[in-house]
C-alpha cells in the first residue's frame, strides 16, 4: 500500500463516519413528538452499546467457553487447561513471575513516587522536577524497554562497555553481568522498567493529595511538637491513605496486564514470561487455543477483584 492510498483510506473512513453520524443525527432531530424521543434514544445509545456487546461481551463469554476446549478448539477437555496452568513447570514459572511483578512493582513504584513527592514539595523547581519523573509515562513501553535494554547491554568484562549498568559495575571493580539473561534476577531487572514508568503516576497523584491535606491538621500537629519523620508517618501517610490505595491498585492492574516489556526486552525467554505475555505466546505463536483462552480467563479472574476494589476506593475518594 502506498502512502497516499493509506491516507486516502483514513480520510474515506473518517468522512464516511462523520457523514453517517451527521445524517442520522439530522434525521433524528427532524422526527418530533413521542416517536422522536424513541428514535433519538436509539441513535444515541445503540452504536456504542452494539459495539460493546459484539466486541467485549460476546468475545469475553466465548473465550471462557473456549478455555474448556483443547488446543485446536475441537473437543471439550473440562478443566485440563487450567490444570496445565497450575501443574506444568513452565506455567508455574509464569505464575511465579506474575506474582513477583504484581507484588514488587506497585509497592516500589508507589514508595518512590511518594518519597519524591514529599522531597520536592514546595521546591523552587517543583514543576520541572515533576516533569522529569513523569516523562516516562508518556512514552510507549516498547520505547521504555529499548531505553533500558541499552542500559543493560552486556559485553565481557575486558571489553569496552556500551551499557551504563555494566560500566558502573566495572567502575566498581566488579565483573560485568548479563542482566536480562541470568535467572532468576532478570525478572527483577524487567520490573525496574515498569517501576521507572509507573513512579511518575504515583508521584503525581500523591503529590496532589499531599497538597490537599488541611493546613489546620498540620499546624495542630506542629504545635504539639510533631515534626520530620513522625510528621510523615503520623500525619502525611494516614491523610493520603485513600489515594495511596488507589495508586497501589491502579499500578497492580497495569502490571498484571504487562506484555510489551517482556516481549521487547527478552521475548519471554530465560524464564521471564508472565501471564499476559504467555497468553499471547500460546494463542498466536504456539496456536494452543484452549490454553491461551484459559490464560486470558486467569488474567480476568485475577484482575477483577483489584478493579472492583479500585473503583470502590475511587468513588469514595470522589465523594469526599
Amino acid at each position: 500500500m502506498s502512502v497516499p492510498y493509506k491516507f486516502g483510506q483514513m480520510f474515506i473512513a473518517i468522512g464516511a463516519f462523520v457523514a453517517v453520524m451527521g445524517v442520522v443525527l439530522f434525521l433524528a432531530d427532524r422526527v418530533r413528538s413521542r416517536k422522536g424521543e424513541v428514535v433519538q434514544t436509539v441513535v444515541f445509545v445503540l452504536p456504542a452499546t452494539l459495539m460493546i456487546a459484539f466486541g467485549l461481551l460476546y468475545p469475553g463469554l466465548r473465550t471462557i467457553y473456549e478455555s474448556f476446549k483443547d488446543a485446536s478448539a475441537q473437543k471439550f477437555v473440562g478443566f485440563d487447561n487450567y490444570k496445565t496452568i497450575f501443574t506444568s513447570e513452565d506455567q508455574i514459572t509464569v505464575l511465579r513471575n506474575t506474582a513477583i511483578w504484581v507484588i514488587v512493582t506497585p509497592v516500589l513504584a508507589t514508595l518512590i513516587g511518594l518519597v519524591y513527592a514529599v522531597l520536592i514539595d514546595k521546591a523552587k523547581i517543583e514543576k520541572f522536577a515533576k516533569a522529569l519523573i513523569f516523562l516516562p509515562m508518556a512514552i510507549s513501553l516498547v520505547g521504555a524497554s529499548l531505553i533500558w535494554k541499552f542500559v543493560y547491554d552486556y559485553k565481557a568484562t575486558e571489553n569496552q562497555q556500551i551499557g551504563l549498568a555494566n560500566q558502573v559495575l566495572k567502575w566498581l571493580g566488579l565483573d560485568t553481568y548479563r542482566f536480562l539473561l541470568t535467572e532468576p534476577w532478570n525478572t527483577i531487572f524487567l520490573i525496574v522498567i515498569m517501576i521507572w514508568v509507573q513512579a511518575g503516576f504515583a508521584m503525581t497523584v500523591l503529590s496532589a493529595s499531599i497538597k490537599a491535606i488541611p493546613d489546620d491538621i498540620v499546624e495542630a500537629a506542629r504545635l504539639d511538637g510533631v515534626s520530620g519523620m513522625r510528621m510523615f508517618r503520623y500525619i502525611t501517610v494516614p491523610s493520603i491513605r485513600p489515594s495511596l490505595i488507589v495508586v497501589l491498585t491502579t499500578i497492580s492492574i497495569a502490571t498484571l496486564k504487562v506484555f510489551d516489556i517482556v516481549r521487547t526486552a527478552t521475548g519471554g525467554n530465560f524464564n521471564t514470561s508472565v501471564l499476559a505475555y504467555e497468553f499471547y505466546r500460546q494463542s498466536f505463536v504456539s496456536f494452543n487455543n484452549g490454553l491461551g483462552a484459559a490464560l486470558a480467563v486467569m488474567l480476568f479472574i485475577l484482575v477483577t477483584p483489584i478493579v472492583v476494589y479500585n473503583i470502590r476506593q475511587m468513588r469514595k475518594l470522589e465523594a469526599r
Binding site: K122, T204, I213, T236
Partner: peptide, 25 residues
C-alpha cells in the same frame, strides 16, 4: 472526575505536612 490535576502554579506558602516533613528531613 475529580482526579487531582497537577497545580499549574505554586500555592501560597502555607506549610503543608509534606513541606514540614521535608524541612525537618
Amino acid at each position: 472526575t475529580t482526579t487531582p490535576e497537577v497545580p499549574a502554579t505554586a500555592t501560597a506558602p502555607v506549610p503543608t505536612a509534606a513541606s514540614v516533613a521535608h524541612q525537618k528531613l
